[in-house]
Design a binder for these strands. Structure first.
Lengths: 366, 366
DNA sequence: TATTGGTTCTGAAACGTTACGGTCCATCCA
DNA sequence: TGGATGGACCGTAACGTTTCAGAACCAATA
């Protein structure tokens, strides 16, 4: 006979159909295609569902059948804490989330910390596509994503065959920044950059490590700086470049200290992110160095806090980057793939860059 | 015969098994339980998989079978933009994401904007549980979540039968803040609060709307303020309370303006969030009102920027709140449910609260 | 009366996987 | 030599849904 109301096993579409004496199709239609059955029957189905405690079609079973998960996976191998504390990353996340929301898609944060070699989370993610952000090009998680038979969009990565991409022209942006410093007269500089690989190296960076860096963005910026300063005769091998694994202001402080200890004569400290630059400014202050009179400091990203303190930096549209990544993924099957979106950047000359002391003396001196 | 390497239909566990002449179980074991088959056979399975382009077991089919999605759903009906711009919300998100990552679980942002009545996204979410944050108690999305047969944790909500909860003692925290202002001598005050319901009402809030507010947190804070000031004879009906739907500093500015236009005599402006308070301070500055000499401004949350400007506020451990919510959800089946976690808060007396002018005159006057 | 057309509902076949309870066989020990 | 042991693998039965081609019915049309 009919099943008891509080059956041990939870109600399913089938049990509901049996209870009602109709086909499963009809029950399914009651939820998904109300026009396919009479209002009266639909009412009965829904009421019986309530009575039996049937919560509606199981999302996973539906996904299996329709081959749609209704969600986009986000892979970011930055440590979550650093990611959420970096306004640039949060902005990216916001843009991506907005694009997903517009399309009625969920956004799944895939658990993949940089230390964890375990790629299982990528395999387990029930998603219709992936967005990859801030990941070294040799990351096993990235490889696992690319093996999955779903569309993927990578951000700030070198071109990958058959994969859409979003990014900025890091080389041009960095070159513009370098030119600005060169024109001001800086020749002795130091650099603070984010991590260049999956291994931790909180120290000076030899040339080969710079060239083989697995973070495309960092590698490109270092190369662009080297090339730009080479045009005015700076030997890049003599430029102190310091790397930090953790992306925090504290990292910026200690890195700046490391550079300044090694070479107190530098007149400009170029940081590859605003977060690092803010830390560097704190360290400069601690040493009694006035910015920019005694030391020029620059960043990259254009986060609100950088704007507040007047940091000289390169603004990039982080929110738009996230949104573009989402759109690219969700509009898939349009246009000939792969596609690549390059967003504009803007050099922001703030109050933290000025002429070096020596140059100033030449300029205004006797 | 064996299938062609580039079959039209993508390879599956079954087709792989057929190709190899083994059972599906064995192929499954090759991926999930390497100890259940000989290394040699496993090698063959994996190699054939590569050859046929089999990407490994389908995550959705696996979820269906195992009844585990490996992800937690987050429902927040705040507009995404406001959520990502509010450091308190980002902190919560960070804590929750950390808890999920620790457990190897994904975190799914369910697309549910406040305007959208469509709860389909909740039904479609393939998750093992839900965390609900910043949602009015009559939100249809919340109702849809509670109908799903998965564990749920609600944040900043009144107790729901059989549902775990995380929150702070809003009443006690607000009372402490009110006492602080009362002791300073404030009697004529104004209030700026976040939205009280699903409808937009960017205006003064009549008493009945205050009492029937669907955001538990806001309702509790207003009630606590009313009760505290009643003890010193303040008639709450005369206190201007202004509401803003959007949670931005711009909202704080315009709300403060609205209050000050109505009652320029107030000596303190109590805001129910730091974001609103920061906006209020900007508006005070615009009017030439010195804080705190001419106007005391207070917030709630204890976000970093509030600390930077020395805002008087109540600090709550937002990251811990998110982490606790995640832990509660993922530790399910422990202890007798439902459980409730109440986190500590701290009154931070900053530089934005002081004695009112009138009181100061009485104090130091002739 | 036969035909058409529309609505309402059905039955069976996927979707791709893992859990469960085995069987088979070689080996080991007494 | 008999019995026990354990490794390697298998077959079947779900998991709960959607899809698709039609069947049954009824009313209206020619």
């Amino acid at each position: 006979m009919a099943r008891s109301t509080n059956a041990r096993r939870p109600a399913t579409l089938a049990s509901l159909a049996a209870e009602l004496g109709v086909s499963r199709t009809t029950v399914s239609n009651a939820y998904n295609r109300p026009d396919q059955l009479s209002p009266e029957l639909r009412r009965r189905v829904l009421e019986t569902a309530r009575r039996l405690g049937y919560p509606g079609p199981d999302p996973v079973a539906r996904s299996l059948r329709t081959r749609k998960a209704g969600a986009v996976g986000l892979l970011l191998t930055e440590n979550l804490s650093y990611a959420f504390r970096d306004p640039a990353a949060v902005g990216f996340l916001e843009g991506l989330a907005l694009a997903c929301e517009d399309a009625g898609q969920g956004l799944l944060l895939v658990p993949a910390s940089p230390e964890r070699e375990d790629v299982a989370a990528v395999h387990r993610a029930g998603v219709d596509g992936f967005v990859v952000y801030s990941v070294p090009d040799d990351d096993p998680h990235l490889a696992a994503v690319l093996e999955r038979p779903v569309p993927t969009v990578v951000c700030d990565q070198p071109e990958i065959e058959n994969v859409d991409g979003v990014g900025i022209d890091d080389r041009a942006a960095t070159t513009a920044l370098a030119r600005h410093l060169i024109e001001l007269g800086h020749r002795r500089i130091g650099v603070v950059c984010m991590r260049l690989g999956r291994d931790r190296n909180d120290d000076f960076v030899p040339l080969d490590r710079q060239r083989s860096a697995h973070f495309h963005v960092q590698r490109t910026r270092l190369t662009a700086l080297a090339d730009a300063f080479a045009t005015v005769g700076v030997d890049w091998a003599t430029v102190p470049v310091v790397e930090r694994f953790d992306h925090t202001t504290a990292s910026g402080e200690s890195a700046a200290a490391q550079v300044l200890d090694r070479d107190p004569e530098i007149t400009a400290l170029i940081c590859t992110s605003d977060i690092l630059a803010l830390g560097a400014m704190a360290e400069a202050g601690r040493r009694g160095l006035r910015v920019p009179q005694d030391l020029t400091v620059t960043g990259f990203d254009g986060i609100p806090e950088a704007e507040r303190v007047g940091l000289t930096t390169v603004r990039q549209p982080v929110l738009e980057k996230g949104r573009a990544a989402g759109r690219l993924l969700l509009d898939s099957a349009e246009h000939g793939r792969p596609r690549r979106v390059t967003l504009d950047t803007e050099l922001i000359v703030g109050r933290t860059s000025g002429q070096p002391r020596a140059a100033a003396q030449i300029w205004y001196g006797p």
